[in-house]
């Protein structure tokens, strides 16, 4: 029993750490440019298919990762911002949110048309540490380590470097940031590029676990939205805590609860938090502007 609990806890933390990466990107876009990206889950599936495609050409995985990073930065970062977000934001963040729903439909059906409806296997890491009763798989441990390292690095970047602080300033108060001589437009672009990098990393880490399928983005997106809300929308650290809480709860529910209700767990957490603690675990209360 102890062995099972430890294993469930570690794989829950691993999947939660990946949710944290996706939710962090989601929160950054939300803070940085009022972009509520309903296609965030699909953004994770796109680089996963790029990696698989490059691998299908017989090239090693790292070439695929590099290619996916470039494609993500160009398409999910630059193009997404220039072609969809910039023109739509003029019409309001509500209209932009709906446009990202349309984008989600385009991405999912585009992937279905190009790659088909099957779930493609993705190379992972086998084996693990065997301590008699307790067995921990390398896959989860490495995922956890990489994700934690990435989030820590991002936090250090945002908190300790000049560019990072400029990004935070631009998100919190664009008018003052401009007065301080910060190139706000550039900072917002960097935010989109960070999100592109985060979803690419998440794709690499999550694909061995969930496989690669055109509509995986729905489930991934729901979990990431919940993580962002549970942790606290207006804080990057919140997304991390939210991701971990969600990953562990989900994995425990999936192991010990009825399988047909597993998708309800992140949704129930989301509703409970909006009802009783809308600012999230770490978030601050938002002031109403009236």
């Amino acid at each position: 029993m102890v062995g099972l609990l430890a294993q469930v806890l570690v794989s829950g933390l691993a999947i939660g750490a990946i949710y944290a990466l996706i939710a962090t990107g989601f929160s950054l876009l939300w803070q940085g440019s009022q972009t509520v990206n309903f296609a965030q889950g699909d953004f994770v599936v796109v680089p996963a298919f790029v990696m698989l495609g490059v691998r299908g050409l017989g090239l090693p995985l790292w070439v695929g990762v590099l290619a996916a990073l470039v494609v993500s930065a160009l398409v999910l970062g630059l193009l997404f911002k220039r072609v969809l977000v910039d023109p739509m934001l003029k019409h309001g963040s509500l209209q932009l949110a709906i446009a990202t729903m349309a984008l989600s439909i385009v991405i999912q059906n585009g992937l279905l048309d190009v790659a088909g409806g099957e779930a493609f296997p993705f190379p992972g890491i086998n084996g693990g540490i065997d301590w008699g009763q307790i067995f921990l798989d390398w896959q989860s441990l490495i995922v956890l380590a990489v994700a934690v390292a990435a989030v820590t690095a991002l936090n250090l970047f945002l908190g300790r470097t000049r560019t990072g602080r400029a990004i935070q300033a631009s998100a919190q108060n664009p008018q003052v940031a401009v007065l301080l001589g910060i190139d706000v437009a550039r900072m917002i672009l960097i935010t989109f590029l960070i999100n592109a990098a985060l979803v690419t990393l998440a794709a690499l880490l999550i694909s061995p676990i969930y496989l690669v399928k055109f509509n995986n983005g729905i489930g991934i997106g729901l979990s990431a939205f919940s993580a962002a809300i549970v942790g606290g929308f207006n804080q990057v650290r919140g997304a991390v805590v939210g991701g971990l809480v969600l990953g562990v709860t989900e994995t425990f529910a999936a192991t010990f609860g009825p399988d047909q209700w597993r998708d309800a767990v992140p949704m129930l957490l989301l509703i409970l938090f909006v009802l009783f603690r809308p600012e999230g675990i770490l978030g601050r209360r938002e002031e109403r502007r009236v």
Binding site: F225, D263, A264, L268, L270, I271
Partner: peptide, 10 residues
């Protein structure tokens, strides 16, 4: 949007 998204799933 998020509460109704959750409701729709449930």
């Amino acid at each position: 949007a998020f509460v109704t998204l959750a409701l729709a799933t449930i």
